[in-house]
Write a protein that binds this DNA or RNA. Structure first.
Lengths: 219, 219
DNA sequence: CTAATAGTGTCTTTTAGACAATATATC
DNA sequence: GATATATTGTCTAAAAGACACTATTAG
């Protein structure tokens, strides 16, 4: 071990957990049980533990598990923020991650210290978490147009209408229904054979095809 | 100040400086003057200094200045790597950056401890710097197709043939000359009025247009 | 004049975008 | 059968890709 007593920044990870509820993006926040900002809802995050974590991905998995009870989460690294003033405790670096999951995953946790805040009307968050959420939305918007990233917000099966709404909200674009369906069936999704009966005329249920993350062209 | 004596990882930044020489990508490395890996060429990098740096961008600027004598460099954040085994001194986090510059900037430094290693035939680097360089190349390849990023490797004026070669090498694709020229003049570049006389028939010199970083479509 | 490289014109194929038409369920 | 929403068909415009052609210099 090499670093007891050095003067080096605090190191943490913060995870922007996004999901899809009531036709809108929501960010999952955790009520803080400790100072600073005790009681306020903030991003799920925590310090890197040198003894428990072998690398940053380990730290993310551990924190998701310990603080939110989540395992096997789809995450990708987002951006790192570091500075003297982003946390009142002093110079800190946070490596941030984007996590996308269907609403059911969060609801089944059945915890009253986890709150879902709708993105369009979100109120301000502690620390520099607003900026981090902005970065996550930017990533989702930019990558959405040529990847299946937005689909990770939905359950494993979904209708094409669901998928189109998610893509329209995350990317901020409007899509023609016929063209959207053709591209998605070409590039990313497959029929399950099941039907959804939530609408007047039942709709076919689709799932993501294996390995379909990045497209070779835009949606 | 809050963190004297905590057990927290070392925090550093590493910068992948890429440039263009002899029709090939090169990475600029610095001969290390201290242990570990003293004497070997490695990425330009250093520890975050909590007293001198207000944020991560400050640390990058300071380190580029102090270690390589470079100022006003085009950089963008790349990725963060952290773990117990990436540096022999213990658990560390490095926030890495991609820097692109024309060869002249490096040559005018006139330093014999800075080496240019050609990418196609590069030998292995200390620490996890190979992985970091790979990430930089991946970023350049992915972003090259729809941005002017590769052009930052060239001097402020360049011929279309130069530009095409840079794009072909960084993206790994081949472009039809006529189509490439049309798209570039449409999207990103403007004539300077000057001519280059390095070839049999002189070629028009171009420059990047203001604000042209991201395209709305692929090259 | 020839070689070498810069630069243009134009045709074909593919993709994007718009929009009309049809299908299948519920009420 | 009316209504709502799912799903398909087809036309047009734009972009991508291929390739032949012309232009301008040095030697």
């Amino acid at each position: 071990m090499a670093n007891d007593g050095w003067d080096t920044p605090m190191a943490m990870v913060d995870i922007v957990i996004l999901t899809w509820k009531d036709d809108a993006l929501h960010v999952a926040l955790l009520q803080r049980d400790k100072a600073p900002e005790k009681g306020r809802a903030a991003l799920v995050g925590g310090f890197v533990h040198m003894t428990e974590d072998l690398d940053l991905d380990d730290a993310v998995s551990r924190i998701l598990k310990e603080k939110a009870g989540l395992t096997d989460v789809f995450v990708e690294q987002l951006y790192s923020f570091g500075g003297a003033n982003r946390d009142a405790r002093g110079w800190s670096i946070t490596v941030t991650y984007l996590a996308l999951m269907p609403l059911e995953r969060i609801q089944s946790l059945d915890r009253d210290d986890i709150v879902l805040m709708p993105i369009p009307s979100r109120s301000s968050l502690p620390f520099d978490h607003d900026r981090i959420v902005d970065k996550a939305l930017e990533r989702l918007r930019d990558k959405g147009i040529y990847s299946t990233l937005p689909a990770k917000l939905l359950p494993s099966t979904f209708t094409l209408a669901d998928l189109q709404r998610v893509y329209e909200v995350t990317t901020g674009k409007r899509f023609d229904m016929a063209n959207f369906r053709r591209k998605m069936t070409d590039l990313a999704i497959a029929e399950t054979g099941e039907m959804s009966r939530d609408t007047r005329r039942p709709a076919a249920l689709y799932r993501l095809r294996e390995g379909a993350l990045l497209f070779d062209r835009a949606i």
